[in-house]
Design a protein around this nucleic acid. Structure first.
Lengths: 159, 159
DNA sequence: GGTAAATTGATAATGAATATCAATTAAGGT
DNA sequence: ACCTTAATTGATATTCATTATCAATTTACC
């Protein structure tokens, strides 16, 4: 089931990309296909451009990093990827998920424990909030910070 | 009333800064005072370092931009300023407000326009969400990304 | 296959942020 | 007020991520 779902959204993504390329009179290339595969099959969220470049290079060492930059920007333009900036000075990208598969995080300030949650109520509220400000919501970033109950001082979250 | 409030939080901030300087054995300087005044009296939220530097320079042309960078970092360290990264590659700072005046942002992907909003409903919902995950919520980060209605392609957010 | 236009990859260039370092300045003791 | 020490400043150089440039290559369409 999980596999099926993955495959389906991969096809959906491919369609989105292809239709965007057609619309903008851009071309389908091997490099874009490779980067597409690597990016959307990568399990980690929010990968940095350089990390992605390193993986892509293993598949095809001839691909330059400028192309990776350009392609991620392309994915972003057609709504397939989201750009994130944490505090470390490098841009990260994450796949935009379809049909409510998104999740957000609660992070414990003391021990670094991270809990994922998926709350439709939040999504509805934010949607309407954007609308009342005349925005078409396409994504959002939400992180909760606080303290978890358990005695959690001992853990570390430095990476 | 508004003026009173401003004055009070300014004094509170001054106290926070002074006690931090004392604790860390740092020194009080004219440059820091100038930047302090300009930053906390500036009406715009989330000012970029360069924007702030331009204003500071008018008061004291001898202050270098490195000092502005360093001082904003200092404000951040002692909890007086938030560091924010929107998508435009430059770091922005905003004063940390006291007594629940927090606000969040909607950012236009195309033109970079930023709208602030303060929605109690969101805060209540997130509070209960944290609680149901056995977390004591102490802060959160929320940014909405989307497209604003107006023909925003023509706008520019680079300066 | 041929042609026009988009794409690529290597490299140069940009731009924000930080490091360096000699000169200056603040703070505390005398 | 002076002295001493250590922090600070400002000018400049440097780093590092990202973007621009451009000749060579590749794609799409006829």
């Amino acid at each position: 089931m999980n596999t099926l779902k993955k495959k389906r959204s991969k096809n959906e993504r491919k369609r989105v990309l292809d239709s965007y390329l057609a619309k903008k009179q851009l071309k389908s290339t091997k490099q874009r296909d490779t980067i597409f595969d690597v990016f959307f099959n990568h399990t980690d969220d929010h990968i940095s451009v350089e990390e992605l470049y390193e993986i892509v290079k293993k598949r095809n060492p001839k691909i330059g990093f400028a192309t990776v930059y350009r392609t991620l920007k392309l994915f972003k333009e057609c709504g397939l990827a989201f750009e994130r900036n944490f505090g470390d000075g490098r841009t990260r990208y994450e796949p935009v998920t379809f049909d409510g598969e998104r999740h957000d995080h609660i992070i414990c300030i003391d021990c670094g424990k991270i809990i994922c949650f998926n709350n439709p109520e939040v999504q509805v509220l934010l949607q309407s909030l954007a609308k009342s400000n005349k925005f078409e919501l396409s994504n959002y970033k939400l992180e909760l910070y606080g303290n978890c109950d358990s005695s959690c001082e001992s853990q570390d979250h430095s990476s």
